[in-house]
Simulated scan of single mutants.
Amino acid sequence: MIFRKGELFNGPGGFALGAKMASVEVNGQTYTVQHEWSNDYSQEACETYIANICPDKPESVYHGDIRQFKDLKNLGEIDAFIYGFPCNDFSLVGEKKGFDGDFGPLYTYGIRVLEHYRPQWFIAENVGGLQSANEGRAFIKILTDMTNAGYRITPHLYNFADYGVPQSRQRILIVGYRNDLNMEFKVPAPTHGPGRENPYKTAYEAIMYPPIPEDADNHDMPVHHERVKKFLSYIPEGQNAWYEGIPEELRLNVKGAKMSQIYRRLDKNAPSYTVTGSGGGGTHMYHWSEDRALSNRERARLQTFPDHFNFKGKKEKVRQQVGMAVPPEGAKAIVEAVLKTYAGVKYDSIRPKWDIDQLLNQQTMELVTV
């Protein structure tokens, strides 16, 4: 059985690649996911998506601001829907405007897709900060709208390191099945970490095995000023710009809050910290022993993109795409659980972080009280 997939805010194609890799076979029937159409406002992300996900169907990727898109109801029938609605206004880093920002309300376009196309299942993705945006009201509103669109949903806060991604990356995923299917998604049990079948995958393993070819795409080495290289030389593995062993004359003159990821070296024996897509000096992620930032290909390795996955655009646009993407291997684990649920295949699971019925009932009671 092939699920035709629509996607909004497709980015470079991390979730799409994971869905493409996912496959479940039971009783002689194979369940897979196939790209049908997608949209993103970034020209470079669309070019990357086309080149790696659907080179034979470039016309199926629509570039443009979804707020100006007039053909949302004429894209073609789908059975599955994935959307990582923009997280800028929900991120824990920044102003955290929630629904009051430019990007917060964009989730509603996904609701329109659910109401119009009625896909059998969907997956929505956003940053962990979504749960606290607008004092928690944004999260409840989004869950309520998804439920009212006719879906039984399961929200959970995932750390992709628990599923074999060499990176500590927490994201909220909301999985929903259409009500008439009478299905409920179970959060797949973590497969990696202390006390589990496999240890965490480390940054060293991801970047060094196998070695990245020098001529690999997106593997341009960063160029630093001598002062930056000297500054980095005093920072041990796993430490950051605030390490006390840095000579006084080289230290950063920063007042107030000191972000832990500024000039932070990787710990080669642990998953990396979160790969990000933006930020100024000191936010580019730093090698555990070499006095330099990582290349985009090394960051892509931490995100589990294969080396043949070619990101389009200039270096900063590539960095943005890599940092904003969903790790394909993490996406694959979730999509395969979705397919197993649909196929009636049991798998190890854990309780979700939130009980959806309790959340929505609590919200109803609060509204009545007010």
Score class of each variant (00 low, 15 high):
residue 180 D to G: 04
residue 238 G to P: 04
residue 245 G to E: 07
residue 65 D to E: 10
residue 15 F to M: 15
residue 137 R to K: 15
residue 163 Y to R: 04
residue 18 G to T: 03
residue 87 C to P: 07
residue 70 K to Q: 14
residue 203 A to W: 11
residue 313 G to A: 11
residue 335 V to W: 11
residue 345 V to H: 03
residue 74 N to D: 15
residue 26 V to H: 13
residue 141 K to F: 12
residue 171 R to G: 03
residue 240 N to D: 13
residue 213 P to L: 04
residue 177 Y to N: 07
residue 247 P to S: 07
residue 143 L to K: 03
residue 112 R to L: 07
residue 161 A to S: 15
residue 129 G to F: 10
residue 140 I to R: 09
residue 156 H to M: 11
residue 327 P to K: 09
residue 284 H to N: 12
residue 201 K to M: 06
residue 161 A to V: 01
residue 117 Y to N: 05
residue 52 N to M: 11
residue 226 E to N: 12
residue 74 N to W: 00
residue 226 E to S: 15
residue 130 L to E: 11
residue 242 W to C: 00
residue 101 G to T: 02
residue 292 R to Y: 06
residue 368 V to G: 01
residue 264 R to M: 07
residue 154 T to C: 14
residue 155 P to L: 11
residue 28 G to W: 03
residue 75 L to K: 14
residue 216 A to G: 08
residue 71 D to N: 15
residue 224 H to A: 05
residue 300 A to T: 09
residue 258 K to I: 00
residue 339 L to Y: 10
residue 238 G to A: 01
residue 222 P to V: 04
residue 244 E to D: 14
residue 71 D to L: 12
residue 314 K to Y: 13
residue 113 V to D: 03
residue 50 I to H: 08
residue 209 Y to V: 14
residue 32 T to I: 10
residue 134 N to Y: 06
residue 149 A to V: 03
residue 171 R to V: 04
residue 14 G to R: 10
residue 310 N to Y: 12
residue 189 A to D: 04
residue 364 T to S: 14
residue 250 L to Q: 04
residue 185 F to H: 08
residue 270 A to E: 11
residue 37 W to Q: 09
residue 250 L to A: 02
residue 264 R to H: 02
residue 289 S to P: 00
residue 193 G to R: 08
residue 11 G to K: 12
residue 238 G to M: 02
residue 84 G to W: 00
residue 141 K to N: 07
residue 173 L to V: 09
residue 64 G to K: 07
residue 292 R to W: 05
residue 145 D to P: 02
residue 169 R to W: 01
